[in-house]
Amino acid sequence: MGLFSIYVPTHVYFGEGRLQRDLPDLIRKYDAQRILIVTDAGLMRVGIVPPIVELLEKQGMVVHVFGEVEPDPSVDTVHRVADVFRQARGELLLAIGGGSSIDTAKGARVILGHGGHIRDYAGIHAKPIKAPVSIPLIAIPTTAGTGSEVTFFGVYSDWENNVKVTVTSPFVAPDVALVDPSTTYSLPAKVTASTGIDVLAHAVEAFVSRAASHFSDTVALRAMALVEGNLRAAVTDGANREARNRMAEASLLAGIAFNHAFLGLTHAVAAAVSGHAHVPHGVAIGLLLPHVMQFNLGASPDKFRQIANAMAGSWDCTPEDAVLMVNTLTRDIGLPQTLREVGVTESMLEGIARQSLTSVQLRFNPKNATEQDIFKLVTAIY
């Protein structure tokens, strides 16, 4: 009773304006001069990455940019980044972007330090990552979002096998997370919505997880309250600095929560949905979260009552209110409500249910789910 362990290996620097002020000094701490920035083409276009390149070059650093990370990055992209780092004789990885860019840099660092293929480190029979890699990794998140800047996980699309693979180890986490909410101010409404609902799912699933602790519960509840209080405003008014700052905080806290408590059925099924139909991760999460909460309701009624209370800022909610509030939130921020809307076909449903069972996240879900249970769930959403 009450036993838990806390390990947060990433040094977090949080606050508006910290990027310009602190990044060069943070890099100098690692005595690094040759930097590889890992990012996506969108951030190059909207002008977030070029000023960072200029900032570092003015400090005498040699900066290379890999700007081709795609949404739900492939295992091939991970290896391309590792190759570019070697060719550039890099000394430090700087990931700028959402979970896709940060996870790609995490995976590349594993390959650079331990060799092999990234698939070797994923799945039930994964090769363990027994030691940290000496290459420093600094993560600058530009979404409020995945929490990847502090998590022990990297998620990759294996399109050859139509699955997503997850690499898990404390040694995967970045050394430094520089969380400057101003980098999220230009995020489009649709991306704000889909990444924001992922934050809520991280917090909810960590909170009801079989591995939850008093520590993870505390940070998860805080994250839920922040999402309910700020996600709508961040979606409808991207210039709302208060909402953007609080969502960045929520993402960070939810990431820390699920580092320690893991996730559940929502993420297990979402990975299968994305693998079969190339649905963006956050969109799949938004579709599934209220339905999975309804499925889990009877297994943890008191926990769901606490979720509703945290989101409502009240003390007299029912467990069912939690499901209703999350369902209302997904509608308010304009997320799709059916699988067919996002390109899932009826013929995919059996494969999605079957693939979901391979996820290690299922062992932490508060209620056991069979293939038939999952098939019924996705059929109801179809």
Rank of each mutant, 00 (worst) to 15 (best):
G17P: 08
R21A: 13
D22S: 13
D22M: 13
P24M: 12
L26G: 12
R28C: 13
Y30V: 14
Y30Q: 12
Y30F: 15
A32Y: 14
Q33W: 15
L36A: 11
V38E: 02
G42S: 11
L43I: 13
L43A: 14
M44D: 07
R45K: 15
R45E: 15
G47T: 06
E54G: 14
E54K: 15
E54Y: 09
E54N: 12
E54S: 13
L55M: 11
E57Y: 04
E57W: 07
K58G: 13
M61I: 14
V62R: 12
V62F: 10
H64L: 10
H64Q: 14
H64R: 15
V65H: 09
E68S: 11
E68F: 07
P71E: 05
D72H: 08
D72R: 09
D72A: 12
S74V: 00
V75N: 02
T77Q: 08
T77L: 09
H79E: 06
R80K: 10
R80N: 01
V81L: 10
A82N: 05
D83A: 15
D83P: 09
F85G: 01
E91Q: 13
L92K: 01
L92H: 06
L93G: 03
L93M: 05
L93H: 03
L93S: 03
I96D: 03
I96S: 06
G99V: 00
S100F: 00
S101L: 01
I102K: 00
A105Y: 02
A105I: 03
K106C: 06
V110Y: 01
L112A: 05
H114W: 02
H114P: 00
G116N: 02
H117C: 07
H117K: 12
I118Q: 04
R119T: 11
D120P: 05
Y121H: 03
A122T: 07
I124S: 14
I124V: 15
H125C: 08
H125Q: 11
I129A: 05
K130I: 14
P132L: 06
P132F: 02
S134G: 14
L137S: 05
L137G: 01
P141L: 01
T142R: 07
T142D: 00
A144G: 10
A144T: 12
G145S: 14
G147Q: 02
S148T: 10
S148W: 03
E149H: 09
E149K: 10
V150W: 02
